[in-house]
C-alpha cells in the first residue's frame, strides 16, 4: 500500500498540470493582496464616516473561491488525465486492486489539498495583516490570530473538501471537461440560482451549497441556517456520496 501511495504522489509531482495549478494559486494570492492593498489605500484617504462602512481588506475573499476551484481541478486531473490519455489501463494493470488504487489517490489528493489549502489560507491571512497593519476593523478582517483561527481552519477544510470532491467527480465522470462543467456549476452558478427559489427554500438550499459551507463551519455568520456541526456533516455527506459513487463506478465499470 505504501508503494502505491508513493507512486501516486510521484504521479502528481511529475506532471506539468500540477505545477501550473500551483502557480495559478500564487497568482491568485498576489491578486488578492493587490485588491487588499488598493482597498486599504482607498480607506486611508476617506473621512471616518465612510471608513466605518468599508468591508474587510482580506485577500482570502479572492483566494478562497478560486482556490476551491483550482484544487477541485487538481483532484479531478489526478484521475481524468489518466482516463483521457489511456494511462488508466496501464495504471490498473500495475495496480489491479482497485480499492487500493482509489484509496491511494484519495490519500494523496487529500493530503496535498490539505497542505496547499492550509498554506494559501495562512499566506492570505498574513498578507492581509501585513497590508492593513494596525488599522482597526472593519478594514482589518481580524483583531487577533485567535479570532481568525476558526475561519482559517474552516477554509482549509473546505479547500481539502474540494480537492477530494474533484477526485470523486473524476472517478464518476472520467472526463476532465465533464468535471470542469460540474465544478463551475456547483461553485459559481447553482448557488446564485438557488437564491431565486421561493422562501424558505432559497435559504435552505443555499445553505448547503459548496461555497457557503466554510463560513457556516467557522460559525462566523450572525444567524446561519446551519450550525458549525451541521455544516461539517453536510461537507462529509458531499465527500461520502461523491467518493462512494466514484468507488462504485471504478469497481463496476470496465476500465
Amino acid at each position: 500500500m505504501t508503494d502505491v501511495l508513493v507512486s501516486e504522489f510521484l504521479k502528481l509531482r511529475t506532471v506539468r498540470s500540477t505545477t501550473y495549478l500551483l502557480l495559478s494559486l500564487v497568482l491568485t494570492l498576489a491578486a488578492g493582496a493587490l485588491v487588499s492593498y488598493l482597498m486599504t489605500a482607498d480607506y486611508d484617504v476617506q473621512p471616518p464616516d465612510v471608513q466605518v462602512r468599508f468591508g474587510a481588506a482580506d485577500p482570502g475573499m479572492v483566494v478562497l473561491p478560486f482556490g476551491q476551484f483550482v484544487l477541485g481541478v487538481l483532484g479531478a486531473l489526478a484521475v481524468t488525465s489518466e482516463y483521457g490519455s489511456g494511462m488508466i489501463r496501464t495504471a490498473l494493470v500495475s495496480v489491479p486492486r482497485r480499492k487500493s488504487f482509489l484509496l491511494a489517490k484519495t490519500a494523496v489528493v487529500g493530503g496535498v489539498s490539505a497542505v496547499v489549502g492550509a498554506a494559501i489560507t495562512l499566506l492570505a491571512y498574513a498578507a492581509g495583516e501585513l497590508i492593513t497593519g494596525d488599522r482597526p476593523k472593519p478594514i482589518s478582517a481580524y483583531d487577533s490570530f485567535a479570532e481568525a483561527a476558526p475561519t482559517l481552519l474552516a477554509n482549509t477544510a473546505s479547500l481539502t473538501l474540494l480537492g477530494l470532491f474533484g477526485l470523486g467527480l473524476g472517478f464518476l465522470l472520467r472526463s476532465t471537461a465533464g468535471v470542469l462543467v460540474t465544478l463551475c456549476g456547483l461553485l459559481f452558478v447553482i448557488p446564485g440560482i438557488s437564491l431565486l427559489l421561493p422562501s424558505p427554500w432559497d435559504d435552505r438550499v443555499y445553505s448547503v451549497m459548496l461555497p457557503v459551507l466554510a463560513p457556516q463551519l467557522a460559525g462566523e455568520l450572525a444567524d446561519p441556517p446551519l450550525s458549525p456541526a451541521a455544516a461539517a456533516l453536510v461537507m462529509v455527506a458531499y465527500l461520502v456520496s461523491v467518493l462512494g459513487g466514484g468507488m462504485v463506478a471504478l469497481l463496476r465499470r470496465d476500465a
Partner: peptide, 27 residues
C-alpha cells in the same frame, strides 16, 4: 508484464518518470 496499448500513457511525463511511477507502485 503487459503491453496493451503503446498510446496508453500520460504524454506529459518523461519516459523515465513514466516507468518510475509504474515501478514504484510495485516496489
Amino acid at each position: 508484464g503487459a503491453l496493451i496499448d503503446a498510446g496508453a500513457v500520460h504524454g506529459g511525463r518523461s519516459a523515465y518518470d513514466h516507468l518510475h511511477v509504474l515501478a514504484r507502485s510495485n516496489g
